[in-house]
Amino acid sequence: MALLETRRLSKSFGGLRAIHDLDIDVEAGTIHGLIGPNGSGKSTFFNLVSGVYPPDPGSSITFAGTDVTKSPPHAIAKLGMARTFQLLRLFSEMTVLQNVMVGYHTHVPYSLLGTLVNSPRTRRIDARITEEMSELLEIIGLAEYADMPAAELSGGQRRLLALGRAMATRPKLLMLDEPAAGLSPVNVDNLLSIVMALKDRYGLTLLIVEHILKVVMDTCDRVTVLDHGEKIGEGSPTEVKDDPAVVEAYLGQEMDDEEVRQAMQA
C-alpha cells in the first residue's frame, strides 16, 4: 500500500475546477515529482493533501493507512506529513532556532503545567530539543544564525530554513513546493544535496513540485504530470519527457507547415 493515496480527489473554486478526479499514489521510500504548467493544480493538490483546503465531497485521501480526507492540518502533520510553501511562510519575527522548534511542536512531550512550575523534567526536555534542533540547523548549514530573526536571512537561506522547519516535524512524507525557485544553479545543487542527505538519514519519502526540469529529471523516481487539474501522464522521468501529451501541455500542439502558413495569414 502506498504511503499517500488520493482517489477521485476534486476541488472546485466557484466554477473553476482546480483539481478533478485525481488518483495519485506516492510509494514509500521514493522521490515522486509533480509537474505541470502554471495553473495546472499542483499547489492546490498540496493544499488539499495537507488539509489546508477541504476537498470536494466524494474525494478520498489516505495517508499512512489513515483516512485524512476531513482531517485538520495539524492532525495530518502529526501523522507524519510535512510540507513547504512556495512563498515559504516563515515565522519571520521569530529566530531561526525558534522556527525549527515550532516544527518540532508535535513531539514536545511536556504539558503547559510542567512549563509553569518549570520542572527539572521540562528543562531537561527543552535542553534536549534545543540540542537536536541545533544539530538539524548544522545539517542545513544555518547553525551560526540560530539566534537571528528569520527575516534577516538571505533568500537562499530562507529556503533552507523552510526545509529545516518541515524536517523538524520528523516527517515520513516531505512535500516540497518549488524548493529551488529563484535559486542560482550553485544553490540548486547545494539544496539538492541537502535534501538527499536528509532523505538518506531519515528515510524520507519525497513529493516534489518543481518547474526546474533538471531537478525533476535528476532526482525523481516517478513523475506525475498535471494539466488543468487532471493527470495527463505518469511514469519514470524519461518516459514522461517523451510523452506526446506532456510535450503538448508544456509547449503547445505542434503545427505542420500548412497550419503555420494559415496562422500567419490570418
Partner: peptide
C-alpha cells in the same frame, strides 16, 4: 515561563502565519 515554552512558540507561530503553524502540527 509560558512564552519561552513550546506553548509560547505555538502562540507566536499563530501570530506570524496561521497556515504555516497548522501544517507544522499546531492546533490553531
Amino acid at each position: 515561563s509560558i512564552l519561552r515554552s513550546a506553548t509560547g512558540r505555538a502562540f507566536m507561530a499563530i501570530r506570524e502565519d496561521v497556515i504555516a503553524a497548522s501544517v507544522h502540527g499546531i492546533n490553531v
